[in-house]
């Protein structure tokens, strides 16, 4: 099971720029490496990362083979209203993880 760590400030003032940090466990196997006996290790990476804020997409990224294991992605957004942030990672071999965090805007 993939572990994810998400850091969203519990509270923010309306109009404040907040930083959101995410870290997820994933090998990000490039698809270019071979084993000791020469067989190719199949690619196994996260392809997309999407974040919605009360249903509206606020951040999206496409990931590729060149990225290190356990992708750490941070971004900022504008705190507009209290609600839920939904984080979704999807990748090879049916990899799909969704996590949520709540934000209170005062």
């Amino acid at each position: 099971m993939a572990r994810a760590l998400i850091n969203v400030p519990a509270k923010a003032a309306k109009g404040e720029i907040i930083e959101i940090k995410t870290l997820i466990s994933h090998p990000m196997e490039t698809g270019f490496r071979v084993t000791f006996n020469g067989t190719l290790i199949p690619r196994d990476i996260i392809n997309t990362f999407r974040v919605t804020y009360n249903g509206v997409e606020i951040f999206a990224a496409e990931l590729s083979s060149a990225m290190a294991a356990n992708p750490f992605i941070t971004f900022t957004t504008l705190a507009t209203e209290s609600g839920t942030l939904e984080f979704h990672w999807a990748g090879d071999n049916g990899f799909s993880v969704t996590e949520t965090a709540t934000l209170v805007v005062e």
Binding site: R3, L5, N7, K21, L23, I24, A69, N70, F72
Partner: peptide, 14 residues
């Protein structure tokens, strides 16, 4: 320094 950025913390959760 930042437990949110330290990937070893994923292992710690396990």
């Amino acid at each position: 320094d930042d437990d949110m950025a330290n990937p070893a913390m994923l292992s710690v959760l396990d």
